[in-house]
Design a protein around this nucleic acid. Sequence first.
DNA 1: TAATTATTTAGATGTACATCGAATTAATTA
DNA 2: TAATTAATTCGATGTACATCTAAATAATTA
Lengths: 204, 204
Amino acid sequence: MIDKTNAQLLVFFSALSDATRLKIVGLLAQDDFSVEELAEMLALRPPTVSHHLSKLGKIGLVSARAESYYNVYHLNTDVLSKWAGMILNEDKLPGLAGDVDIDAYDKKVIADYTREDGSLKTIPSRRKKLEAVLRYVAREFVPGADYPEAEVNRILHGFHEDTATLRRELVAAGLMVREKSVYRLAAEPAPKHVRSGLTRRTRP
Amino acid sequence: MIDKTNAQLLVFFSALSDATRLKIVGLLAQDDFSVEELAEMLALRPPTVSHHLSKLGKIGLVSARAESYYNVYHLNTDVLSKWAGMILNEDKLPGLAGDVDIDAYDKKVIADYTREDGSLKTIPSRRKKLEAVLRYVAREFVPGADYPEAEVNRILHGFHEDTATLRRELVAAGLMVREKSVYRLAAEPAPKHVRSGLTRRTRP
DNA sequence: TAATTATTTAGATGTACATCGAATTAATTA
DNA sequence: TAATTAATTCGATGTACATCTAAATAATTA
């Protein structure tokens, strides 16, 4: 069901991602027209216009009625409203990811850095990989539970002997919080940094 | 200015008319990610993902910040709102036609059916062509002015000797109204038929 | 009924672009 | 400083599609 909406949205955007079809929408927004009329206005051949109208018809944006013996096309503006509402609803945006495995990166990193028994070969130095490993380690703690430092160390030792680094990085990454020498998983999954502007790294 | 918005809208739709890019939008709606993370999730090569992010960046839908030495991409949902508002505004839809000559069909028909002095060679039998010619003839009347039938005939005779047919068709087409044996241009440019369903003429 | 006309379908052609591997650039780690 | 790594750019390849002509279909006019 979600997947279907997804595919339809793609068809919708594809239908409107053409200069000629946008012009047709603009024309039909002003009046209904036959294929021949549109072809003359657009300086295109009737088969070409018919092809475009077919694509717009696939998403229900235009419909045709047989008048005299012309096919007169009409714009259904409510279809535009329907899809505009879709992309305005931020709750539905994540669904666009579809069947993508959002954990694929973590899985790959964990596979690279762990032994068969689940312990860490090394602690990654690269930030993103370290974060992935930390999320993996954090899964060993129960949400809401309090852990004294000794207990934290005992658990972390099952992953790597450098428990101090792991403990410090878990807190630095925002995955755990320390309160009066007691540790606990952070309530939020790890807050992102404040967004800066368009500081893209590019060459001139 | 209008033309610029038009071109930008085309870039916007083109940017979203790709399955992979829609997935990227869905992923970035859930969290910020680096190119490598996205590549892993999507099972694509980093250059490919970079290419897609570049397209999404062109319309401002995503932006990147240099973090550590990754390029971390972020979704700007306000850009979606901006364009959704555009296609929701029915007043702006006609502008999509851009520089298209909406009178091209009428011009062609008139050129085909008139002599150098502007009179009609024949009265078209094809509906659409008749309508175009009638709109041409109607231009000879002043909006709001009343014309007794004799005066109407006099004017129409400059176009064709069959004034009765022209007069009748002008009224039938909704271009003129008769009220107590006096004629006048219709206020509305000619009302369209009531819309029916999807009565498209197609073969099986 | 025959001729005309509007539309659609089918097939052909050229262009745009999604994807990849290789090379380049830039930043981090050792 | 040297080696590693993330990202982008470049060039190549194959596919998708906008457009056209020709043919088929359907409806109107003569």
